[in-house]
Design a protein around this nucleic acid. Structure first.
Lengths: 226, 226
DNA sequence: GAATATATTTGTACAAATTACACTATTTAA
DNA sequence: TTAAATAGTGTAATTTGTACAAATATATTC
């Protein structure tokens, strides 16, 4: 298909998850050029020649969201020669979990992109390349992680209620959980720090606020939720 | 470090596990050239321009072992610019599990390699590049897989005893398991087919032979062993 | 062929984790 | 003060995991 003298291009694409408006969403960019001009895609870009792959993924993330210090994990490397219509592009995909509050989406005026937007992960527009497959694979991985690691905290504000925490799990797992069992299990893990504060009159009865206790986490193993 | 005009090279390296002489081993090749001339390394090679990454990994595997149709899974992509002393080489690592009986190790006389050999994974020689890290990461992944998937069967002959199955788990997890609990758990999973045969006079009491029942597997979920 | 050595096979009691399930408490708004 | 909405709580049944010891079948040896 390609001449053997042609070289691979290597990119990284980052599936960025957040919870916004009560929905699990991913960040998509609208492509300014062919191929797939006008189609939505996961943000991505070429890996620079002296840059680690992790650094490239972080750079992509920062360009679009201005956030750093967030949960970022290498997902899988997609390299079907047919995934790009005109070149051999191998992409090392990552996923990230971020809090979307106080984030201003942006893109440099490099005319690669005409729009940046959050899209509900369960209701995606048609996507460029194999990006639908990459998002589906990410979601699967996030669910796997959720069972073992407290990554849900990456999506929540510093102080949160148990109901908010449960909602986060329900959105990612896409199923209802039992309130009493959820609370019992989390409190038994003792990775939550009960604060002296409550939500100020959101509506109805105020809820206790908790924060994530990183200290006890390291000694914890085993399942979170399935 | 590198000029931006320089291009990435993309390889795949395959960590091939087997059980041999009662030990968990990995396949290593001795490098014929610099860098790391004379050092042991994981078998690997460049991904061809019109080849999927999976196909490249399979090709590497077949070149060295002549086996096909085995368990092969993408592990992780290692891309530190410093991992190769003279070039920017991104490698997409895989791991494979194979039965080592009736396998003849081989290498084409391309003078890239001077030897191919199985090495105990818990007693490795000094390795080229970041290959030690890659093997450690593989082992971690195999252990994770072992908890959920019946991949141990990939290392066993078609017919095996429960003791052999347990030994396989113990070698990979590097710890002793309780015999009665191991059997109870596996038999409860009903992914084993009890055969009418026994081991013919290995020594002492003959053991019942079992085979792996693929049919019931698909309906199974959850933990295997931890 | 009897005794011995070696590996196979089997069950039970206890602890821990998971699941199912319904009512009371506190606040705001009418 | 009443109604509506969300927060918060406990127990019993089931399942799963863990710890642990004796009997059985064959080969070898005396």
């Amino acid at each position: 298909m390609f001449k053997e003298t042609k070289t691979h291009e290597v990119t990284t694409d980052v599936v960025i998850f957040t919870i916004k408006d009560g929905k699990l969403k991913v960040l998509l960019v609208k492509r300014a050029h062919e191929p797939f001009k006008g189609k939505w895609a996961i943000p991505g870009g070429f890996i620079r020649i002296s840059e680690t792959i992790d650094a490239a993924a972080l750079r992509i993330l920062k360009e679009k969201t201005n956030v750093q210090n967030i949960y970022l994990e290498q997902l899988y490397t997609f390299g079907d020669p047919l995934r790009h219509p005109t070149a051999r592009v191998i992409t090392c995909a990552y996923f990230a979990l971020i809090r979307s509050d106080d984030i201003v989406l942006s893109f440099e005026d490099n005319s690669e992109i005409t729009e940046v937007q959050w899209h509900p992960v369960y209701d995606l527009p048609p996507l460029a390349f194999d990006h639908k497959e990459i998002i589906e694979y990410s979601l699967k991985r996030v669910r796997e992680r959720l069972e073992f690691c407290p990554i849900a905290f990456q999506l929540l504000p510093e102080k949160f209620t148990l109901t908010e925490l449960q909602k986060t799990y329900e959105l990612i797992l896409d199923k209802k959980l039992d309130k009493r069992n959820f609370r019992k299990k989390f409190l038994a893990l003792s990775i939550l720090k009960e604060l002296d504060e409550c939500t100020k009159s959101g509506s109805k009865r105020p809820a206790r606020l908790y924060s994530f206790n990183e200290i006890t986490l390291n000694s914890k193993r085993g399942h979170f939720f399935s």
